[in-house]
Design a protein around this nucleic acid. Structure first.
Lengths: 200, 200, 200, 200
DNA sequence: GATGAATGAGCGTTCATTCAT
DNA sequence: AATGAATGAACGCTCATTCAT
């Protein structure tokens, strides 16, 4: 650990973030001790406090990592072309990335319900995601792919919810393959409908 | 607090359950102390242990309350008639019931990822719900309302995920009205599709 | 449990004593809870306090049972006849009686070191035992069986200590047969000596 | 309290051991709280857990101190020369050493009857002591001091039991002088016998 | 910059004892 | 006489945080 160049601090922080992300992911916020994190890094407990004011602060910074990954994958998977294929690619990529875990998402959700600062952050990220999805849907409307009268905001919410809900199901033991199929079929239903011609 | 009649013990348990449900809902599992629960009831900590072996046991019993409510509402809202209307009724009733909170659901989810017993319980409840929804969809297929070739299992997963995801969005500040609309519009999309005729 | 005749209270007490003797013997003083004792009797915790002021009081009364057994066996085993045989009989009978356990003796010893009342009681019982043994030895002196110049008080202490020490060894896993042999051989040594003629 | 030098941790441990030895000796295992020990050292409860995993672990380490003292004294007191004198020296030295107390021995005995790990430890120490004593007796046999046909194992048990029993008597108030005399006279009896020539 | 010993507040849990019934 | 729900004080143990080194 050389200490000469100024990026040192930044790098040290990011190493701590990586280690604690794993810890929080495995043991939850309350279940993770500062000692856990320190041990993963082979560092003393006190050292963590040189870079983060408190456990809460550390967690907060971690919360910011999730959306970054999401956004990146969203932008690489949704391009021109078949909507269903894009959606499938997105879901697969989200499952394949190894940094973030659904555990963490729900850990943050749980925590944010008691922590206003966290809540605001989570809300902002949620809205940003929503807008991205919505903009994409709007574009498809303009292109004539999707129906003119669709409520894109609400459909965006539905898509995000569907995704989040499937992540939750993974947590309780649903297999990844099963979740993928559910995602694909549901998105397909949202595109083509499920009613017979005869239905009103 | 008379202690003569035999239902006393049962009632005492249920009073503790109500109080701790609130506590867990507000502060989460780790954030809730047995003292919190006791104080809400104006009772000593020790008294709780007359009715529940441990904090974990108490939480486990609470976890069983959620699915009961869900099932009841599911059965009263999905009857013959318009699918969309049934879905809307279901969502409204879930929001109106005052016993359960989404917080609690995600608290349980978080906790279950580290507690195998809990996980098994949650998984069983999830599967039960899934089967109920699926059976309903199958029935609609038989009746000719839904298309013949639908993958009802996966659509059921999708519907449950959609619902769960919207509950999550409520937690981070989405308004109930907004969530309702998202639910309605997404379910509608799943029924009628969103593509224009021209799309493939 | 009829409550008419006056011996009722006495019998109830003795039933409690029997049950708690077992409990204390198995789990020690601190390890035994009033609930343990109550459950063994199929009785409520409160009932115990009708007959004994406190856990300590209950224990104290138990402490009085041990010496009674000891004295009885001492008097039946030491009669005229061979000293060594008498000693052997005594040891065997002590091992065969099933009421008292060595555990209890040392539990009492431990407890008495912090409880002056208990200590005084234990001391009195010890002295009584000592005097009995001593009187027996004195008689043997008078009869010409034992040497004239023996310090009977100190030999009595030695004998009692030998016995107590062997009880202790039973507690840590020494077999009963082994302990019996040790007792017999040591008493024999105390009678006949162990030195060769040549020794001074 | 400098914390620089490496022996610091070792010394801290031994300071805790000393303090808790006293505490356990005075109040017994259950009667001693971690707070007691901490207060004796003017230290916080938590500090103890930096050096010992649990109260039980702390006690276990203390249990290992007793035999060390015993063995040391045994080896310094039993040399060539008069057996009776050696025995006397041994007993005096055991009484004079100030580290260990008989209380502690019996506290351990009590505890070990419910704690298998402890029991095994105590048994091993007992056997080691026994073997040492036995080896000494065997040597005396070989030298022609003691009779050829003596059962040294059983006599060793008898001697250890005698010692243990006298330690017990000290606990209930027997004076040290009295105990010494009892020890000396009993050992003497074991050497020279107590029967008159005329006895069979 | 880094350590790790120390703190102190707090947690889950137990249990002898009481007392309304 | 008997119950058993309730108490309250205490215990073993943990951990985020601090600070002398």
């Amino acid at each position: 650990m050389p200490r000469v160049y100024p990026e040192y601090k930044t790098e040290a922080k990011s190493r701590i973030l990586r280690a604690s992300l794993q810890a929080f992911s495995e043991k939850g916020y309350d279940g993770t001790t500062m000692n856990d994190v320190a041990k993963r890094l082979g560092v003393s407990k006190g050292a963590l406090y040189l870079y983060f004011k408190s456990k809460g602060e550390l967690f907060k910074e971690i919360c910011e990592l999730g959306p970054q990954i999401l956004v990146k994958i969203m932008f690489t998977s949704f391009k021109d072309g078949d909507l269903l294929e894009n959606a499938e690619t997105f879901f697969n990529m989200m499952l394949e990335q190894s940094v973030w875990t659904p555990n963490l998402s729900f850990e943050i959700l749980s925590e944010s319900s008691r922590n206003p600062t966290l809540k605001k952050m989570v809300k902002q990220n949620y809205d940003k995601t929503l807008n991205t999805v919505r903009a994409f849907l709007e574009e498809q409307k303009r292109k004539g792919v999707l129906k003119r009268d669709l409520e894109t905001h609400q459909l965006a919410m539905g898509l995000v919810a569907l995704f989040d809900g499937l992540m939750a199901s993974l947590l309780i033991g649903t297999g990844e393959a099963e979740a993928k199929q559910a995602w694909n079929q549901t998105v397909k239903a949202m595109l083509h409908g499920t009613l017979t011609r005869a239905s009103p």
